[in-house]
Computed example of a mutant assay.
Amino acid sequence: MPSEIAPAGLRERKKEETRRLLLEGAARLFEERGFESTTVADIAAYANVSVRTFFRYFESKEALLLPDGVEIFTFVENALAARPADEEPLDAVCNALSQAAEPFAASTLTALGHPLDDIENVVTARLVQAFSDFEERLTVLVRDRLDPDTPDADLKAAVIACAALSAVRAVLRTRRARRASGLTDRGPAPLPRAFGFLREIGST
């Protein structure tokens, strides 16, 4: 039996290594040459694989601009788990999302190189969709933080999770619209500002 398992394990390690090299190559080439000047063939060559093999791992070079949704979700989950147990649920979720979203957004803009690059629309759309897909999962995490005797705990958890993720999507869309208009963000980071607005709404 061990002899049958070993080849499968080796194949998985090989696949993970190829994926790692493709991501590493994309990050390095985007930084050195810029996104538009880097081709799929360039990235494949860095990983020593064919273009055909590249497309077995990623649907396009745009897909390399962002980490997998699973990676984003894991980052949020870990950040939320590290928040103090007595922290208000909305505050805990907002703080965890701030820790997760900003680094990913910053790394994306670095790869793009130019804030008005057309591909930013694709990237923003991907982030918006990723956070939309995370709503049910985040709702469960919030529910686990609520007191067991909380009335309508399932509904409260869903409202907190969906409201916080909507704030993230609002920031992404607003930032894209501002850049398209030639405007720049000023003052504190936009995501904490958005969460501040969300808390103000809840307190009125």
Rank of each mutant, 00 (worst) to 15 (best):
E77G: 07
N78W: 02
A79Q: 02
A79N: 00
A81R: 15
R83W: 00
A85D: 09
A85E: 11
D86Q: 13
E87C: 14
E87D: 10
E88I: 05
E88M: 09
L90A: 05
D91W: 10
D91P: 01
D91M: 08
A92G: 02
C94R: 04
C94F: 04
C94G: 01
A96R: 05
A96T: 04
L97V: 00
Q99I: 15
A100K: 03
A100R: 04
A101H: 09
E102F: 07
P103M: 06
P103F: 07
P103I: 10
A105S: 12
A105N: 01
A105H: 04
A106V: 14
T108C: 13
L109W: 13
L109C: 00
T110N: 01
L112V: 11
L112M: 10
L112H: 05
G113D: 02
H114M: 03
D117N: 15
D118V: 15
I119Q: 03
V122S: 08
T124V: 15
A125I: 02
R126L: 03
R126V: 01
L127R: 12
V128K: 07
V128L: 08
Q129D: 11
Q129M: 10
F131R: 08
F131T: 08
F131S: 03
D133A: 14
F134G: 00
E135Q: 14
E135F: 07
R137Y: 03
R137S: 13
R137F: 10
L138S: 02
T139L: 05
V140Q: 09
L141G: 03
R143F: 12
R143N: 05
L146H: 04
D149W: 06
T150I: 08
P151S: 08
P151G: 11
A153H: 00
D154G: 10
L155W: 06
L155M: 09
L155V: 09
A157Y: 01
A158T: 09
V159T: 09
A161V: 09
A161Q: 06
C162F: 11
A163H: 15
L165S: 00
L165K: 00
L165N: 00
S166N: 14
S166C: 10
R169E: 13
V171F: 09
V171P: 03
L172R: 07
R173C: 01
